[in-house]
Amino acid sequence: MKSVKLYPKIARDSFLEQFKWSIWFFSFLTLAHVIGMFIANRNDANVEGFFVFSSYSAAIFMLVCGIIAAFGFMAYFVQHGISRKDMFFGVVIGAFGLAIAVTVVPLAIHGIEHLISNFVSMPVKSDSLTIFERTSGWFSAIGVFFLNVFTYYLVGWLIGIGYYRFNWLIGLGFVGLAIVALSLNGFFWGEAGLSTIIPWIPYIPTEASLLMSVIGSLLLIAVLIIATRMLTKRIPIKL
């Protein structure tokens, strides 16, 4: 038998499966956004543009996908005779693709919203609609969104594996780790949260140092990927 590399197949499969979920997710989110606009319209208020509007919930969606990946995909692939290594790289690549999709889809919806707003007046904050017009801002906004959702997926995966592999108590420890990781992520992107809790951590506004934020974020992603690989390298599969 020829040896075949299976991880591209797995990447494709895990991406497609989760992309299907994301279509459901964005359908509901779009609906929520439209409802939000109606409510805002009545109260003379404004809602965020779709891209900004979806950033938090998209991250949570990715977190959940990551958790499901640990319980759903991992064992399933190995049970069908796929090595943990192929499974791991397949799922990571699939998640990378998913993170791109989850960034591009709200961007596209945002673009459509932007087009419509040229003809119809909508209760959407004008500055959040202009990301397509500001040459400096839009690229970094998309990059930040992508890194953020990818990080959330990896964190979810790590939590899932913690629970899958160990008991609930250690699993809870993984949730703690996840909070640390996400706080770090927030810190890199200029959320003041961490610096108000831990006084010796300086507050770095994103605008001040985009490069540092990107490096920090990439480092965090690398650490998460390595940790997940170490935990799954020899993981026993439950029956």
Binding site: M1, S3, L6, G81, S83, R84, R234
Partner: peptide
Amino acid sequence: FENADKMLQVS
């Protein structure tokens, strides 16, 4: 264990 070719031979 973790042998991709051999694992694929086992159901």
